[in-house]
């Protein structure tokens, strides 16, 4: 009898345990159904973009490799520039020609976005600056890559440190141009502002409590009505001053 009871209690415990397990499994799957991850695409943790430039005058645009831009993480911030090779002398001459003729120095960076839509090869985003201002700033420029949250490149902007062009042709031809001194930044989409209802409601609560605690205006009587008391006193003093001397004069004569 005892053994039977023991057995049955063990069995009951087993059943309960298994029931519990099943219930847990059900709940787990159910809740996981409800948990939808917010970001559907993979987060790229680092970004490396080859940058190309065009330094030739004339109608045909030829882009040659300039280097690469590396970003360690996709947070707003700076990256690094690595030049693939120093500028060859003939390239340097082309650049000087471009600057002398007032042409445009262009740069471009590939982007994934175009190729998603069309089945062409890589699409590029490009920008430009005046070639003479690049030389003016001694090959120092600032490159900003504009990207959205998932790391897709939307645009590039390339700006010289000094935007004016004051060097003469002789000065230009005397320059030695080999490496670029580039500061690289990554600019991402900023989340838009939301009406700040939380902070406001808290502020309202605080003020309400304060008002309750403070009570009514309890400055002294004088402090409230000094504006009216002073002129009356002055007036009395004046009329009192009149009486005295007159009284004195009348008494004297």
């Amino acid at each position: 009898m005892a053994a039977y009871i023991e057995n049955s209690s063990k069995a009951a415990a087993k059943i309960c345990f298994q029931l519990l397990l099943t219930v847990c499994v059900i709940f787990a799957t159910k809740t996981s159904k409800r948990l939808v991850s917010d970001d559907g695409d993979d987060i790229i943790s680092s970004l490396s973009l080859p940058i190309q430039h065009s330094i030739q005058t004339g109608d045909q645009l030829v882009f040659i490799e300039r280097g690469s831009l590396n970003f360690k993480s996709l947070t707003h911030g700076t990256g690094s520039y690595h030049q693939s090779s120093a500028l060859m002398p003939h390239e340097s001459n082309l650049l000087k020609e471009l600057a002398a003729s007032g042409g445009l120095y262009r740069a471009r960076v590939p982007t994934q976005l175009l190729s998603l839509q069309t089945s062409e090869d890589i699409g590029y985003v490009s920008s430009y600056m005046k070639a003479c201002s690049l030389l003016e700033s001694n090959m120092s420029d600032e490159v900003t890559i504009h990207a959205d949250q998932s790391g897709q490149v939307l645009g590039i902007s390339i700006l010289p440190i000094k935007g004016t062009c004051t060097k003469s042709i002789d000065e230009i031809s005397a320059m030695d141009l080999t490496t670029f001194n580039t500061t690289v930044t990554l600019s991402l989409v900023v989340p838009g502002p939301v009406p700040d209802t939380q902070a406001y409601l808290e502020k309202m609560e605080e003020e309400r409590l304060q008002k309750k605690a403070n009570g009514t205006d309890n400055r002294s009587f004088f402090a409230k009505y000094w504006m009216y008391i002073i002129p009356v006193v002055l007036f009395l003093m004046i009329s009192g001053g009149q009486e005295q001397p007159r009284g004195g004069g009348g008494g004297g004569s």
């Binding site: 003093m237 009149q242 005295q244």
Partner: peptide
Amino acid sequence: DMPDLSEM
């Protein structure tokens, strides 16, 4: 009377 004030 006016100067009286200063006199006073």
